[in-house]
């Protein structure tokens, strides 16, 4: 009788101990996981209209390089990133802006006027004047800003930059 009572007390103690241990572990683990993965959960929304310069400075039908910088705050540190684009005025009113970042592995493409192609120096990807893939490894055309994403205000060309 006394024995059975003793055993149940034992089991109670074991169970409580295990429960308390699990509780402490869980209360540490859950915030810890959130703490560790936190930066991955934050969306770095850097959506903004970025000026590229006077529209008149760009010739119609001829891609011209332009660049701009954006600064973002990563934690306690501020980073200034540069972005390059090619501005192509397809007509008096229409402008197409292409990112110079190759869609293959992210090298910077260059414009070759003689071939009328963008060529990536890393793996010889070729893109047409409108960014379409002509040859080489890239999976998709160059990223573009056109239509709604481009505007002209007071003669200055803006693109709607959505982040890297």
């Amino acid at each position: 009788m006394a024995g059975s009572h003793h055993i149940s007390r034992r089991d109670f103690i074991k169970l409580t101990t295990a429960a308390v241990g699990t509780f402490i572990g869980a209360v540490v683990a859950v915030p810890a996981i959130a703490y560790l993965i936190d930066p991955a959960l934050k969306s770095a929304s850097t959506d903004a209209w970025v000026p590229l310069g006077k529209l008149a400075a760009f010739e119609i039908g001829k891609p011209a390089p332009a660049s701009f910088t954006r600064s973002i705050v990563n934690g306690w540190e501020k980073t200034v990133n540069s972005y390059g684009v090619f501005v192509l005025r397809t007509s008096e009113t229409e402008t197409l802006v292409l990112s110079n970042k190759c869609t293959h592995l992210g090298c910077h493409v260059n414009w070759f006027a003689d071939k009328q192609e963008y060529i990536c120096p890393c793996h010889d990807a070729q893109f047409g004047i409108n960014g379409q893939v002509l040859g080489g490894p890239p999976p998709r055309p160059l990223d573009r800003y056109s239509g709604d994403q481009v505007k002209v205000e007071d003669g200055i060309l803006f693109i709607h930059f959505l982040g890297a």
Binding site: P31, A32, A34, Y35, D38, P39, L41, G75, W76, E77
Partner: peptide
């Protein structure tokens, strides 16, 4: 200092840790 401010205000549960 800034990184600790970030832990306190910027990271989930940083204040708790």
């Amino acid at each position: 200092y800034d990184s600790i401010q970030y832990i306190m205000n910027g990271v989930a549960f940083g204040w708790l840790i």
